[in-house]
Deep mutational scan, measured.
Amino acid sequence: MEVRTIKVFTTVDNINLHTQVVDMSMTYGQQFGPTYLDGADVTKIKPHNSHEGKTFYVLPNDDTLRVEAFEYYHTTDPSFLGRYMSALNHTKKWKYPQVNGLTSIKWADNNCYLATALLTLQQIELKFNPPALQDAYYRARAGEAANFCALILAYCNKTVGELGDVRETMSYLFQHANLDSCKRVLNVVCKTCGQQQTTLKGVEAVMYMGTLSYEQFKKGVQIPCTCGKQATKYLVQQESPFVMMSAPPAQYELKHGTFTCASEYTGNYQCGHYKHITSKETLYCIDGALLTKSSEYKGPITDVFYKENSYTTTIK
């Protein structure tokens, strides 16, 4: 009895394709271990004539594949690729409408935090270190965002349907971005203890939790000093293409032309909904596939993004 075979390709990165001759009487799992086709788990399936010449994702289970996976995804987590594939199996079914010149995501599976993050990423200057993220990001900007969303979920250790947080998501993504040249110098002034300067680099240099107003941050924000008295913390120097200011959701007025974009969060910790506000020729609110415009805006804002380049204080 002759062994019926077909020729397929296996890959971990969709760049390096490895030619395989597979036995049609055995499952993919018996031949390769966990195997995925377009995100779908085909591990328990036997090869079919229609699979001839198709590319299958496999887990990096030998040295060659491990090197290829690390170079593309910059992670050695053995569960990463499987999590990416199972997320992709959902995100490829989502709709990605162009809204006001940006790629958004039609609401499904509690994905409003991903839509808000995706919209924000198209408006701030950011370059990702893992080629996987950078490639998928370019495709997302062009309207094909399924891979990018699935990668975000995998890097953030999230599953489809789980509630997510924009600030946490951005923080994970910033860790995989090139923020080497970003720098922030802060000064804390206390009447009792004097003053202390701190220099922050990388992710810490672009994120701040405690106030939404970048102007206020430049002037000074009140913080408790270690001595128990009130101290003032203010920005001395900022070198970065953008800054992200966050605070627990509270009524906040966004003035046209003073910011790049913002995240609105309605609801409580267990259950809520994100919308995205962007400042173009007027203010726009993007909620999944829905767009509304207004000249002014007041609502429960939790993150505001500002364009920056270089700032030095005039406070002496």
Score class of each variant (00 low, 15 high):
residue 276 H to Y: 01
residue 260 T to R: 02
residue 316 K to Q: 15
residue 117 A to S: 15
residue 217 F to I: 13
residue 150 A to E: 02
residue 88 L to F: 03
residue 131 P to W: 04
residue 258 T to P: 04
residue 66 R to M: 11
residue 180 D to G: 12
residue 196 Q to H: 14
residue 122 Q to Y: 01
residue 20 Q to E: 12
residue 88 L to N: 00
residue 157 N to P: 00
residue 118 L to F: 13
residue 271 C to M: 11
residue 50 S to G: 11
residue 34 P to N: 12
residue 219 K to V: 09
residue 125 E to V: 04
residue 164 G to K: 06
residue 314 T to R: 09
residue 152 I to C: 07
residue 163 L to F: 14
residue 155 Y to T: 00
residue 133 L to W: 00
residue 231 A to S: 07
residue 171 S to F: 13
residue 103 T to N: 00
residue 19 T to A: 07
residue 256 H to K: 15
residue 282 T to N: 09
residue 122 Q to M: 04
residue 211 T to I: 08
residue 49 N to G: 15
residue 139 R to E: 11
residue 61 N to A: 12
residue 92 K to I: 11
residue 232 T to R: 11
residue 96 Y to M: 03
residue 225 C to G: 03
residue 246 S to G: 02
residue 264 E to M: 05
residue 304 V to R: 04
residue 210 G to H: 03
residue 259 F to K: 02
residue 240 S to Y: 01
residue 82 G to S: 12
residue 236 V to E: 06
residue 191 K to P: 13
residue 81 L to Q: 11
residue 257 G to T: 08
residue 144 E to F: 07
residue 23 D to C: 14
residue 80 F to T: 00
residue 269 Y to Q: 15
residue 247 A to D: 06
residue 138 Y to W: 09
residue 27 T to L: 14
residue 160 V to Q: 00
residue 191 K to T: 14
residue 53 G to S: 11
residue 148 F to R: 00
residue 202 G to V: 04
residue 56 F to N: 01
residue 62 D to M: 04
residue 62 D to G: 07
residue 165 D to G: 13
residue 179 L to S: 06
residue 112 C to M: 06
residue 253 E to M: 08
residue 111 N to S: 01
residue 274 Y to L: 01
residue 81 L to D: 00
residue 61 N to V: 10
residue 233 K to R: 13
residue 203 V to H: 10
residue 105 I to V: 10
residue 224 P to K: 15
residue 123 Q to T: 06
residue 72 Y to A: 14
residue 95 K to M: 11
residue 194 G to F: 02
residue 15 I to N: 15
residue 178 N to I: 04
residue 25 S to E: 10
residue 200 L to G: 05
residue 201 K to V: 15
residue 297 Y to T: 03
residue 117 A to W: 01
residue 52 E to A: 12
residue 64 T to A: 10
residue 254 L to M: 01
residue 97 P to D: 02
residue 163 L to H: 15
residue 279 S to F: 02
residue 23 D to S: 08
residue 148 F to A: 00
residue 116 T to H: 07
residue 33 G to F: 00
residue 185 V to G: 05
residue 81 L to S: 03
residue 41 D to K: 04
residue 81 L to T: 09
residue 285 C to I: 15
residue 187 N to G: 09
residue 33 G to K: 01
residue 16 N to S: 13
residue 295 S to W: 13
residue 90 H to T: 14
residue 157 N to C: 10
residue 135 D to V: 09
residue 91 T to P: 01
residue 197 Q to M: 12
residue 218 K to S: 04
residue 58 V to C: 11
residue 16 N to E: 13
residue 189 V to L: 08
residue 270 Q to S: 15
residue 293 K to T: 12
residue 192 T to S: 12
residue 46 K to G: 06
residue 258 T to D: 09
residue 251 Q to V: 12
residue 183 K to D: 05
residue 221 V to Q: 06
residue 10 T to W: 06
residue 173 L to G: 00
residue 284 Y to F: 08
residue 197 Q to T: 15
residue 84 Y to T: 01
residue 36 Y to R: 02
residue 188 V to I: 10
residue 95 K to L: 06
residue 78 P to V: 12
residue 210 G to M: 05
residue 71 E to H: 06
residue 94 W to L: 03
residue 315 I to N: 10
residue 108 A to M: 07
residue 217 F to K: 06
residue 133 L to N: 01
residue 230 Q to T: 13
residue 108 A to H: 07
residue 8 V to P: 02
residue 226 T to H: 10
residue 86 S to G: 10
residue 171 S to P: 00
residue 198 T to A: 12
residue 65 L to F: 09
residue 174 F to K: 01
residue 196 Q to D: 05
residue 124 I to H: 05
residue 144 E to A: 06
residue 134 Q to W: 03
residue 279 S to L: 03
residue 298 K to R: 09
residue 277 I to N: 07
residue 316 K to G: 12
residue 112 C to E: 15
residue 258 T to W: 03
residue 83 R to W: 00
residue 86 S to F: 03
residue 140 A to L: 11
residue 245 M to P: 09
residue 63 D to P: 13
residue 266 T to F: 05
residue 168 E to K: 06
residue 252 Y to M: 12
residue 213 S to Y: 01
residue 244 M to P: 07
residue 283 L to H: 03
residue 276 H to C: 05
residue 225 C to Q: 02
residue 217 F to P: 03
residue 245 M to L: 07
residue 230 Q to V: 10
residue 290 L to E: 15
residue 109 D to G: 05
residue 153 L to G: 03
residue 239 E to Y: 09
residue 273 H to G: 06
residue 204 E to N: 06
residue 7 K to N: 14
residue 183 K to E: 10
residue 180 D to E: 12
residue 253 E to I: 15
residue 271 C to F: 14
residue 120 T to D: 04
residue 138 Y to E: 13
residue 258 T to Q: 14
residue 187 N to F: 06
residue 106 K to A: 15
residue 86 S to N: 12
residue 111 N to V: 00
residue 240 S to H: 05
residue 153 L to N: 00
residue 62 D to F: 03
residue 215 E to M: 05
residue 46 K to N: 10
residue 201 K to M: 15
residue 45 I to K: 11
residue 263 S to R: 02
residue 156 C to H: 02
residue 313 T to Q: 12
residue 227 C to D: 03
residue 258 T to F: 06
residue 72 Y to L: 11
residue 31 Q to I: 07
residue 84 Y to W: 03
residue 295 S to F: 12
residue 215 E to I: 04
residue 118 L to E: 02
residue 17 L to E: 11
residue 173 L to F: 02
residue 46 K to C: 09
residue 295 S to G: 13
residue 220 G to S: 05
residue 197 Q to N: 09
residue 24 M to G: 09
residue 49 N to K: 09
residue 269 Y to C: 14
residue 105 I to F: 01
residue 152 I to Q: 03
residue 148 F to I: 13
residue 204 E to W: 03
residue 169 T to Q: 01
residue 89 N to G: 12
residue 34 P to D: 14
residue 122 Q to R: 01
residue 69 A to C: 10
residue 286 I to Y: 08
residue 185 V to R: 06
residue 129 N to K: 07
residue 141 R to G: 06
residue 234 Y to G: 04
residue 190 C to F: 03
residue 111 N to C: 00
residue 259 F to P: 04
residue 98 Q to T: 13
residue 236 V to G: 07
residue 56 F to H: 00
residue 43 T to F: 07
residue 117 A to F: 00
residue 270 Q to D: 15
residue 121 L to Q: 00
residue 67 V to R: 14
residue 240 S to N: 04
residue 281 E to R: 04
residue 77 D to P: 00
residue 55 T to E: 08
residue 304 V to A: 01
residue 55 T to L: 07
residue 17 L to P: 03
residue 148 F to W: 03
residue 77 D to I: 01
residue 42 V to H: 14
residue 311 Y to C: 07
residue 253 E to T: 11
residue 276 H to L: 00
residue 222 Q to I: 13
residue 219 K to N: 09
residue 145 A to Q: 02
residue 204 E to V: 06
residue 250 A to K: 12
residue 214 Y to C: 04
residue 59 L to Q: 12
residue 20 Q to R: 14
residue 88 L to K: 05
residue 41 D to A: 09
residue 284 Y to V: 12
residue 81 L to F: 10
residue 101 G to Q: 06
residue 283 L to I: 11
residue 205 A to C: 03
residue 202 G to E: 02
residue 113 Y to R: 00
residue 222 Q to M: 11
residue 211 T to S: 06
residue 191 K to G: 14
residue 23 D to V: 11
residue 92 K to E: 02
residue 50 S to H: 13
residue 295 S to L: 13
residue 297 Y to S: 05
